[in-house]
Amino acid sequence: MNTPLPVRVARRIVPCLDVRDGQVVKGVKFRNHRVIGDIIELAGRYRDEGADELVFYDITASPEGRSVDIDWVRRVSETIDIPFCVAGGIRSIGSAGRVLEQGADKISINTPALERPGLIDELVQAFGSQCVVIGVDSIADGDSYTVRSHTGTPDAMKTPGRDTLDWLSEVVARGAGEVVLNCMSSDGTRDGYDIRQLAEARKRLPVPLVASGGAGVADHFIEVFEQADVDAALAATVFHSGQIPIPGLKQLLASAGIEVRPC
């Protein structure tokens, strides 16, 4: 066969779709959400463009204490043939199971894991490490990093007083299969990923690490793969707006010597 063989598993490009009331929205620094489009339409578009995976985040779920409305999860699963993860409002074995039963490949939890870390162990026991993703919202505090919870709405945000890197070690020890690290100071700025923080996280994590927050131009993706050695890079605005088309981004990454799945 003539296809070049990969040195290793491809780096993933992951559009993130923030979902509110059944529609995709986007805000800057977790505020001022505006409607971007229909969930199924956007999911289909990203599938066709060569996205490697999608993350759907129900941004209203956790602060309002409700679980995700899962009808759209089934419709996404029927529509796309790439993996997808659902985040937001999953706080029990029951709510996780319902989302997975509708066809999600992974579930991501954030605030509920901080409130009760034992939930991670329970989810891993029930469904396996491979589908348990821990989302971490983190802010630089001088030389250290600390996590935030209830980040879906700014007024509800809390500071649980945990060091980010310690928390990452703990979630892996509890069996998490992947971590999405959202660097909140970079989120929505389009100034680039927080390379320093992600590289620190990388050192602590034997499991796949997904970078989130700050993508503005295609070169930011090269930087984060080369300098922070992350397994996947997540972004929203630059993909939704069409500013960075995924096929072109993947060509650029490939020409920089970064392993990607051809579109």
Binding site: M1, T3, L5, P6, R8, V9, A10, R11, R12, D52, S129, Q130, G177, E178, P206, V207, P208, D231, A232, R261
Partner: peptide, 12 residues
């Protein structure tokens, strides 16, 4: 080497 092996890989 990350475990789980999670993502897209080619067959040979």
């Amino acid at each position: 080497l990350r475990i789980p092996h999670m993502g897209w890989n080619a067959i040979r």
